[in-house]
Amino acid sequence: MMRLLLALFTLAVMTVQASAQRLVMSTSEPVVSISSNFAGDTITIFGTIEPDIGFEHDQVTNNYNIVISIKGPAGTYVARKKTHQYGIWLNGEQEAFEGFPSYFALVSSAPLEKIADAGVLSVNGLAFDSSPHIRPVRRTQNTDVFAQQLIRLMKKRGLYSLDEHGVQFLSDTFFSARIALPAHVPNGTYLANTYVFQNGELIDNAPQRFTVRTVGFERFVANSAKEYSLIYGVVCVILAIFTGWLSGVVFRR
């Protein structure tokens, strides 16, 4: 609760909008910790739509719709298509995409097409294939097809998801959404962006960052592998030889 109050206060100071309403929101966890028994996690995003300073509460009308986008750290992804050559199937064409989000969830309070026009959604990055996310390294005639396939594969892996009833209004102005992070979410900084729509128009948005990272032993292992890779490799070999030797001793082969 303290965290919520703090977030409310911070955002109240930060958000200066011309409109009569403003959005305050926060996430349940600023850090999602991955430990040895991590099997995915659920993060809750909640917020409220407040009257702006100088406006009365009854000027805040209803009919709000919320769309939340959660994006994971971006990387260069490549989509490949198998083609039939020389009697076997092998990877033929491929298209690479830069700055492609490794995780992307869209959660909304209603079906997206009822909230706003596709154009409005796309400009704000509220579609998987909107231009901010699709940055082909080299644009060809097949780019769009490969982009769609890439998104489909990411959905299949559970890293891209769309939930059009994921945002619940607990009162006229207070909402919350639960977003599932699967066990194989990449580590890094995530950006949750909440957009408030009213009658098809965007009236406010607010970003919130949270971090997904390994902790404790897992973090130590991942860091060691990156920073002390030679020592890490040697330790792996010593561990393997020791395990093999121990089993020989224990079972007296």
Binding site: G72, P73, A74, G75, T76, Y77, V78, A79, R80, K81, K82, T83, H84, G87, I88, W89, L90, N91, A96, S102, F146, Q149, L150, R152, L153, M154, P186, N187, G188, T189, T211, V212, R213, K226
Partner: peptide
């Protein structure tokens, strides 16, 4: 079989440069 049979999904995805650490 994986080389000769028509793949059920001809498309595949790979990460070229790793996503941000942390």
């Amino acid at each position: 079989l994986s080389l000769l049979l028509t793949p059920s999904d001809p498309f595949s995805v790979a990460v070229l440069s790793s996503v941000g650490g942390g």
